[in-house]
Nucleic acid binder design. Structure first.
Length: 424
RNA sequence: GGAGGGGUGGUAGAGCGGUCGAAUACACCGGUCUUGAAAACCGGCAGGGGCCCGCGCCCCUCGUGGGUUCGAAUCCCACCCCCUCCGCCA
């Protein structure tokens, strides 16, 4: 949610900034709604004030023992006009709120122009893609040969875009999770949290998935009103919904491992092979809740925290700054980390680290008491994958494969596999 | 699932048809005192919104939504959530 006051005071500037993302803000409609809102609100509030004043007068008259019947008749006459004005106000406000709810966040000035991923800007690379002296296999072949990745079994149980993992690969997958959680809690100052995987619509509105992106979500059958989480961002960030935090409670740094569920509507035919794009996958998520003045530094720090995972695992990657058109709805600025996948001969996204400024905080009413002003003001929220576990497994398999089809275990993971150095 | 109790400001907790947006305490902010701090004392202090250049005025909010009433934190109905006990259960 953008600041409604700014939307009112400088709509042209905001429209211009939204245009960078290819979003067209209908200024005429906004101005028209705003004008109506103002007129109706002033009228409704005047009638309410009138009603309140007269009701109080009745109270006084009654206490003084006067006849209150004529006064009552007067107020009754107000009733109809008041009711109509209130209904009109509610309608205009609902329309305005619906408009506001669909506006994406403003982009940070450092975000480059551009329509789509072709215009993203590489910031830096780490590591050298390995040169193989044997034919490289992708994770699907490697997994099949090892007997650890079974897409057919998953299809029978559930359908496309699921996987069954077995034996050493299932264990490797779990080891990755443990490794990431330990790293972020022990070295990066995050508190581990365990959160619900089913959330209500208010939470999804708070982080920006609803109302606009309902088709990406799995809703639970029945009348619970619950949805499967598409990312831990939703339950974890909503920990501060409707709260006013003390400055000395900040920053909050949370790390959570959860499964993520995505309908992947609109991605038909994309990444259909292997476990790059699944309906269900595991992710270790980093979330920070910070004071606004600390937030840009926090974004850089959080992105580093995710990069460290790749570096400890010895996986070559690059950091990419998303351009205007590729930056997500709620984000002001996003870095993607792309890991090198020999099986695809390409860098593929494995982490997305976003700064939401006050956009989510406004939707969630997540505030802190700013000691400067003494008033509650919106916080800043950030998050990033640290990392997507399924894709990390893919990266380990493909980057550490041997000519015999077995997999070397990265040094950092060995303690989590009882010292084992090779899989297969 | 059954029975009972309860949801009020940053927190705890009074209020149970009109001058209550709300006692009191704690927390917090400012001041006095002090070399400084603590203590003590004095004062301030809910959130959201609107109008106005401003002083300021007004509206809404006591879990949510309806209803009764001239008037609702207070009465009625529904729903949600929390607690206690019983049953069932990983």
């Amino acid at each position: 949610m953008l600041d409604p006051k700014r939307l009112r005071s400088e709509p042209e500037r905001i429209a211009e900034q939204l245009r960078r993302r290819g979003y067209h803000l209908d200024l005429d409609r906004l101005r028209d709604l705003e004008a109506r809102r103002r007129e109706v609100q002033v009228r409704a509030e005047r009638l309410q004030a009138e009603r309140n004043a007269r009701s109080k007068a009745i109270g006084r008259a009654k206490a003084a023992g006067e006849d209150i019947e004529p006064l009552k008749a007067e107020v009754a006459a107000l009733g109809e006009a008041l009711e109509a004005a209130e209904a009109e106000l509610a309608a205009v406000q609902a329309e305005l709120e619906a408009l506001y709810a669909e506006l994406p966040n403003l982009l940070h000035e450092s975000v480059p122009d551009g329509e789509d991923e072709r215009h993203n800007v590489e910031i830096h690379r780490w590591g050298e893609p390995r040169v193989f002296d044997f034919p490289v296999r992708d994770h699907v072949e490697l997994g099949a040969a090892l007997g650890g990745l079974d897409f057919e079994a998953a299809a029978q149980i559930s359908g496309a875009r699921f996987v069954v993992m077995r034996g050493e690969l299932a264990r490797l997958h779990r080891a990755l999770i443990q490794f990431m959680l330990d790293l972020h809690t022990a070295e990066h100052g995050y508190q581990e949290v365990y959160v619900p995987y089913l959330v209500n619509a208010d939470s999804l509105f708070g982080t920006g998935q609803l109302p606009k992106f309902a088709e990406d979500l799995f809703a639970v059958a029945g009348d619970s009103g619950l949805y499967l989480i598409p990312t831990a961002e939703v339950p974890v960030t909503n920990l501060v919904r409707d709260r006013i935090l003390d400055p000395d409670a900040l920053p909050l740094r949370f790390v959570a491992h959860t499964p993520c569920f995505r309908a992947e509507a609109g991605s038909y035919g994309k990444d259909t092979r292997g476990m790059i794009r699944q309906h269900q996958f595991e992710k270790v998520e980093l979330v920070q809740i910070v004071a606004p003045e600390a937030s840009w530094a926090a974004h850089e720090a959080l992105t580093r925290h995710a990069e460290v995972v790749l570096e400890r695992l010895g996986l070559p990657y690059r950091r990419v700054l998303l351009c205007a058109g590729d930056t997500g709805f709620a984000s002001a600025k996003t870095y993607d980390l792309e890991v090198w996948l020999p099986g695809q001969n390409a860098y593929r996204e494995i982490s997305s680290c976003s700064h939401f400024t006050d956009f989510q905080a406004r939707r969630m009413r997540a505030r802190w008491r700013n000691p400067q002003s003494g008033r509650p003001e919106p916080l800043h929220t950030l998050n990033g994958s640290g990392l997507a576990v399924g894709r990390t497994l893919v990266a380990v398999l493909e980057n550490y494969q041997r000519a015999d089809g077995r997999i070397d275990v990265p040094e950092a993971l060995r303690p989590y596999l009882g010292g084992q150095a090779v899989i297969g």
